[in-house]
Design a protein around this nucleic acid. Structure first.
Lengths: 107, 107
DNA sequence: TTCATATATATAATTTTCCATATATATGAA
DNA sequence: TTCATATATATGGAAAATTATATATATGAA
């Protein structure tokens, strides 16, 4: 994975937020992201497909749902970049996480 | 600096290479980057202007030359991301650094 | 059939690039 | 010093390329 392909894939609000939310929650299904980000299903799905195509995320179908998580084969630098960004920017995801938790009726 | 603005600014080959070269060499002038990257002067200048506009780089004129270096006011996570990417991807800049050293007639 | 997700196509918006030109500094001659 | 020229860098504007979006439709599991 070349740095430029990696950063191009992060350079969209929907993709970056999806990635950081998935990093925080370990794995999420498409419908979780749709409700957290409050975006249309095709939009979320298309951006997840991009993250899948450049092998940042992997997907796994379990019944009706498709779950996305980080690709464990990512190079170390990419894992570190995602982790650092997610941990040190809580405010960037704050509202999305609140909304997600409300929609899950939990916490 | 929001993560999305930061990553949008990295998501171009000219900008990313310029940034990583500057990170490696501490500071470089525009003409150094033009010869290292083998790109037109307006192209390099325009991309440096973007990195300046989003406050990732700062510039300083010294005589005829304008030097660019990292903005020390960058948030920690951004500094870490740049450092990690630069250090763990030597091959991404390899040819550019060789070409730069040849043009400088050094090392 | 319904629910969850993916994808195709057309359109819109954004970004990049190129060429020309502008600006700022340095240098050399008169 | 002044004027002309050279060098380094920046920027305006148009065209080209890339990317994102909405809507409609397709697929796959229950």
């Amino acid at each position: 994975m070349s740095p430029i392909d990696f950063y191009k894939c992060l350079a969209d609000d929907t993709r970056l937020k999806s990635l950081l939310l998935i990093s925080k929650f370990n794995e999420l299904c498409v419908c979780d992201l749709i409700s957290a980000l409050d975006l249309s299903q095709p939009k979320v799905s298309r951006h997840l497909a991009e993250l899948r195509k450049c092998e940042i995320l992997v997907d796994e179908r379990r019944g009706k749902w498709v779950y996305y998580k980080l690709n464990t084969k990512l190079p170390d630098w990419a894992k570190q970049v995602i982790k650092t960004t997610a941990e040190q920017n809580p405010e960037y995801l704050k509202l999305n996480i609140e909304q997600f938790k409300n929609s899950q009726d939990c916490c």
